[in-house]
Simulated scan of single mutants.
Amino acid sequence: MPVVDTESGFTLFETLTAMLVMSIGLVSLFEAHSHALRTAEAAANYARARIFAQGLLADTVGGWSGKLISKAGTDDGFSWSINVAPEDASWAKVETKDNWRLRRVRVIVSWAGGRQIELDSLKLGRTNG
């Protein structure tokens, strides 16, 4: 007849302690994963907003018509505005024919979470159009 050792195995307390340590480890792992996903989403939104803002700026200052206008709108989860104003710095005040003046073009793109990106550029434009 085989001899049974009644002292072998784990007690209930040891098992519960092991499960507690494992659950703390898993919660920490899931929290780290969740934080990584939020960070990746924020980076992706920032990259999309930057590309969108660069496209708006390029469309605004890319033409040779000399007509620069302010406008705003929403698109694909982004709110955007293009502000065109005369450059007020002393070095920008130069007399020209046909009312051409240096203009500051500012593109602002904002999205959820109160985040925004601003791009600035300078462009010659007509003051009458």
Rank of each mutant, 00 (worst) to 15 (best):
L102Q: 02
E41H: 07
L20T: 09
F78G: 02
A58M: 05
E14G: 04
G129P: 05
S28P: 10
F30V: 12
A58L: 06
F78M: 04
E118P: 04
E95H: 11
F78T: 04
V4K: 13
A58E: 07
S65Q: 12
T96I: 04
R106M: 11
Y46K: 13
L122S: 09
H33R: 15
T39S: 14
S79V: 01
G129N: 09
A32R: 15
K97D: 11
F30M: 14
F10Y: 14
A72P: 04
S28Y: 08
V3P: 09
S34N: 13
L56Q: 01
S65P: 03
S65I: 00
D5E: 07
V109D: 02
L37A: 09
L29I: 09
V21F: 09
N83D: 08
W91L: 11
S90E: 15
A49W: 04
I51S: 12
S65R: 13
D5Y: 08
T96Q: 09
S28I: 08
L124M: 11
D5A: 01
A32Y: 10
E31S: 15
W91H: 07
L26N: 05
G62T: 01
L20Q: 07
K97C: 11
A58W: 01
M22N: 06
E41S: 05
W111L: 03
A89R: 15
R104W: 06
E41R: 04
L37M: 12
M22D: 06
I82W: 03
R101F: 08
S8C: 13
S90V: 14
G25M: 09
V4E: 10
L119M: 02
W111S: 03
N83C: 05
F13L: 15
E95L: 11
T6W: 13
A112S: 08
G9P: 05
S121M: 00
V61I: 07
N99R: 13
I108K: 14
E41N: 06
T96F: 09
Q116L: 07
I69R: 09
N45T: 03
I108M: 12
E95K: 13
V4G: 07
I24A: 14
E87P: 06
I82V: 14
R104C: 03
P86M: 10
G62Y: 01
R104S: 08
E7T: 14
S110K: 02
R38L: 11
A42I: 02
T17W: 07
A89W: 12
A32K: 11
G113T: 01
A32S: 15
T11D: 05
A36G: 10
I51T: 13
F13V: 15
F13S: 12
K97M: 10
G25H: 03
N128D: 12
S23I: 05
H35I: 13
L124W: 15
V105K: 04
T127A: 13
E118H: 09
G73R: 02
L122P: 05
V27S: 15
R48L: 00
M22W: 10
G77L: 00
T60A: 06
L122E: 09
N83V: 09
K71Q: 12
S8A: 14
L26E: 05
G9I: 04
Q116N: 12
V61P: 01
R126F: 08
L57I: 01
G66E: 01
A58Y: 00
I117G: 02
T15M: 10
W64M: 14
T39R: 14
F10W: 12
S28G: 14
E7C: 13
S65M: 08
